[in-house]
């Protein structure tokens, strides 16, 4: 955590050019490697593919032949039934609203704090930094009981704020910003200050515009984290129409033994939004992890 350094991208290495007598073993090794990889990758895709395949099969067919893959009569009936049950649009909306709110608040607060720690000098700066560092080691889930009680006494259970607020103090996000801000040339800040800009203006007009990569990395990961959070919304949201997607999909039940086609359709519906985000931002996400400051 302390060794925060962004690694420059090296060019992709292909296989190295070996001496001629080594070429055969090299080629063989490559073939085995490729075969293994493809086999594993296909295996990795099986659960999602099976869910997709099951979700479009008629319910009766799933009962008679549960492990079949293909159907002669594909149907979207299971999806229709889920939508008819009526709560899915709420869950999507709730997940979307809470994720956006948390992300926005986190980005603003974490970047402000990081800016203060990185660029300004104040008393107790070091103490503040150490305290923050200690915060990384507090596992949030362990504090679920007092957090719940605090929100209960504030009357915020079953509101978006109840889901959002406890997820805002994200220490790692501060470090991500701080690491980025530390790399900003000092002269840039000094010049702005010399022009008479206050700290807030420097932050907003100089620093933030050039910190888009940090902002988007934090955005994506906070968004995904909040969208996928299960335990916390499970506690604070009990009203079926206030639930987030993961909680709603797994705690609100249908009567009379939910057909598997329908269960798999819910799984697919739950998977789609983030798979879409991933497909759109694949490189960004992967680069984000690759350049991780946690190294």
């Amino acid at each position: 955590m302390t060794a925060i350094a962004t690694r420059p991208e090296t060019e992709h290495r292909g296989t190295t050019a070996p001496p001629a007598r080594r070429r055969d073993s090299e080629r063989l090794f490559n073939r085995v490697a490729l075969g293994t990889l493809i086999a594993l990758a296909v295996l990795w895709l099986v659960p999602l593919a099976w869910a997709l395949a099951t979700s479009v099969r008629p319910a009766q067919e799933v009962v008679t032949n549960p492990t079949g893959w293909f159907t002669a009569h594909p149907t979207l009936k299971a999806y229709g039934e889920i939508f008819d049950a009526g709560k899915l649009p709420y869950w999507y909306a709730n997940s979307f609203i809470t994720s956006i709110l948390t992300t926005v608040l986190t980005v603003i607060m974490a970047s402000l704090a990081a800016f203060a720690l990185s660029q300004t000098r104040f008393r107790l700066r070091r103490a503040a930094f150490v305290m923050l560092l200690a915060g990384i080691m507090i596992p949030g889930q362990v504090l679920m009981i007092p957090q719940f009680l605090a929100l209960q006494s504030a009357g915020l259970l079953n509101t978006y704020w109840g889901v959002v607020l406890p997820q805002v103090p994200n220490v790692v996000a501060v470090f991500v910003f701080k690491q980025f801000f530390d790399g900003i040339p000092r002269e840039l800040i000094d010049a702005a200050r010399a022009d008479g800009a206050g700290w807030l203006r420097t932050y907003w007009q100089i620093v933030m515009p050039i910190s888009r990569p940090a902002v988007s990395a934090v955005t994506i990961f906070v968004f995904v984290g909040v969208w996928n959070n299960f335990l916390w919304p499970l506690l604070v949201v009990t009203d079926p129409e206030m639930m987030t997607l993961p909680v709603g999909l797994t705690s609100v039940q249908d009567v009379f033994g939910v057909p598997y086609a329908q269960l798999m359709a819910s799984a697919v519906l739950g998977a789609i939004p983030l798979l879409a985000v991933f497909a759109l931002f694949q490189r960004r996400i992967v680069e984000g992890i690759a350049g991780t400051g946690l190294k």
Partner: peptide, 16 residues
């Protein structure tokens, strides 16, 4: 299970 946040690598602003 995953509250891990990575830092960004140099900009790729077209995704914005």
């Amino acid at each position: 299970m995953r509250d891990r946040i990575p830092t960004p690598s140099p900009p790729a602003p077209s995704r914005r």
